[in-house]
Nucleic acid binder design. Structure first.
Lengths: 235, 235
DNA sequence: GTCAACAATAATATTGATTTTTTTAAAAGC
DNA sequence: GCTTTTAAAAAAATCAATATTATTGTTGAC
């Protein structure tokens, strides 16, 4: 009630600069695996692919290098950041540390709005997870809601920096998850894990939720590493 | 022995692109406080200041936004990232978590080369800290060696991501330290703290070094917050 | 036959001018 | 007097052409 009583706050929804859309489109294509790890990102190629000028393109790539989704070497252009098993393990480990820490700060601090966001996002996630058709569209829909659910859980954390780093690791982990084309979304019962996490959140049981999230993340990491190992031996 | 037997590895020392130098120069000017927090970074202004084209400039600023040293808003340009007491506390807290974690992984894992790097960097730092003239040049020299010393301590840590994030926080903390023009480099006996940390590292005493680093970082944070508070009340 | 030098090609990086958008200032309406 | 419109100025964003650098392929020497 404190602010915006009646009048909508004037937040520009998203800056509609070409650079911004370039950033978002390329980012999505890297995380989804459409631009595979290690791929050379030739400017001309991207120009035709996205129908953009080189200026906005280079700016977008520069920003993506800050997210460590793109690597750059002077005078030799850009590359989709390579992946490795070691990196996957590192990311999994860091995500565990950051996400549990964020939860420790978030859960005891969550207000009604925090609870509402969790309930809503869990409901949407549940809907997707319980209808079992795993098409390619479903997968990216699942990613959206999975993301929102995990984000909602840490929403009570006050530390901006912790949330930023947690998100960085989450996005990195997502790329690995999608790259290794995990069918495990059903085989391992992810929904049961999410349900348990949800219940622990509603109970404000910090130790419980931390323990659940740790094994949840570890499970994902294990599946990713397994998939990468299989893939490597197939060639 | 698999590759480069005998021949020196051909690492290009630093890409000499204009974008790269722009990035480095602007970064240094932000961290040193020469470009103050909140300042609008008009492209034309920067063009004349650094004698650069707008392309490389925008690319450099895009990269800096990834370091959170610059903020950008679509169609409204770039800004030196603002500072606040809350942010300083947040950064201090996160730096403590990340740096101690990195030390826990580094210290037990350090080899001879790790020890050597610590000895060397500590020696250089000591030299600067024991000659008491605190000119502006000395200050930036101190920052260099202080940086190298702390970097050497965590050099045994295998986690790339942890080191990356630690460095991010370290650099952010450095900007606050320099912004609040701490005279404390001598008043608080920083050198004694560094000496104790050095000794604990040589002893491979993990718990000791973690405890020392925590209070070391907390001391810096306190001084920064104090300086910011004073500054605010002066106006 | 192998290596080194050299040209040809391709790609990156950079510039400077143009377009679009925002901000500022002034004038008109209520 | 205050808000809303309109016009002018400033700034950001973008484009298209140029310069620079790296890569590739070929020739010639040993």
């Amino acid at each position: 009630m404190k602010n915006n009583a009646g009048t909508a706050t004037k937040t520009r929804p998203q800056a509609k600069t070409i650079t911004e859309t370039a950033y978002r489109r390329i980012r999505e294509d890297i995380v989804s695996g459409d631009l595979p790890p290690g791929m050379k990102l030739k400017i001309d190629l991207l120009r035709t692919r996205y129908d953009l000028g080189s200026g906005p393109l280079r700016e977008a790539l520069s920003r993506l290098s800050g997210d460590h989704l793109v690597t750059m070497e002077g005078q030799r252009g850009f590359l989709v950041a390579p992946i490795s098993i070691a990196d996957a393990l590192d990311i999994g480990q860091m995500r565990k540390i950051l996400e549990t820490q964020a939860l420790r700060l978030s859960v005891p601090n969550g207000d009604d709005q925090w609870e509402d966001a969790i309930v809503t996002s869990f409901h949407r996630l549940k809907r997707v997870e319980l209808r079992n058709n795993q098409g390619i569209d479903e997968m990216s829909e699942w990613e959206t809601y999975n993301h929102q659910f995990h984000e909602a859980l840490v929403g009570g954390c006050q530390s901006k920096w912790l949330l930023r780093m947690r998100k960085l690791m989450f996005d990195q982990h997502e790329r690995y998850r999608r790259f290794s084309r995990m069918k495990t979304v059903t085989s391992r019962d992810i929904h049961m894990e999410h349900k348990a996490i949800f219940d622990a959140a509603m109970d404000r049981n910090v130790e419980k939720i931390v323990q659940l999230i740790e094994s949840h993340i570890q499970g994902t990491t294990n599946a990713v590493v397994q998939a990468l190992t299989d893939q490597a031996s197939q060639i």
